[in-house]
Amino acid sequence: MQTLQFDAGQFTAKAVDGGFADPVYDAQAVFHALMQANARPGVRETLADRLEPPAPLEAGLAAVALTLCDPDTPVWLSPALRTDAVRAWLAFHAGCPLTDDAGAAAFVLCAQDDTPPAQDTLHAGTQEYPDRAATLVLALPALDGGAALTLTGPGIEQSAAISPVGLPDGFVAARADNRALFPRGVDVVLVSGRDLVALPRTTVVATADGSSSNAEAN
């Protein structure tokens, strides 16, 4: 694990500004949204506008990072996010170590324009300790307007539908492979602006024509 390095010259007021106005209540509100989103996969939660992270770190990614990441959780940033401003901001507000090895990260944050690492390269936990798996947080252009996906599994009464835009190639097949690892597996959170949808490892993702494996979403 490579820990964050930055020199003091880059540590400006910008790194200090823009965090949660009230860290206790704001983090609770974001966690509540994440908990309900994970409990009800496919149901969209909208976060309050309480953060001003430095570009290109998006509000949704920043909210997840500040709510769940701390010195105990190695974080992998996609290339676009590896700017001094983002590193310094996360270092000040979350204090999380950064790693270049996506397979060693507890949280994998991926900006809109970046390609996330393949899901089977991320830490899926072990059969004895499946809770040690990574969480993949994907920023997308929109959570509506893309190809329709059908969700089933725990947390969903019958089935749920989402249609996110800009999922990485092979996402549906990757989720099927991930589902086959259960109880191991990577959990996914999709964020767009201040909206988020969670796809925990239990959720079966299928394209609208009903195929959940070997089919491409995009």
């Binding site: 983090a27 994440l34 908990m35 994970n38 769940l68 809770d131 925990p200 490892r201």
Partner: peptide
């Protein structure tokens, strides 16, 4: 402590 417990809760929900 809350963050640690919150991470545990999210993983618990993901692995019923």
């Amino acid at each position: 402590t809350k963050r640690m417990i919150r991470r545990a809760i999210l993983k618990a929900i993901a692995i019923p």
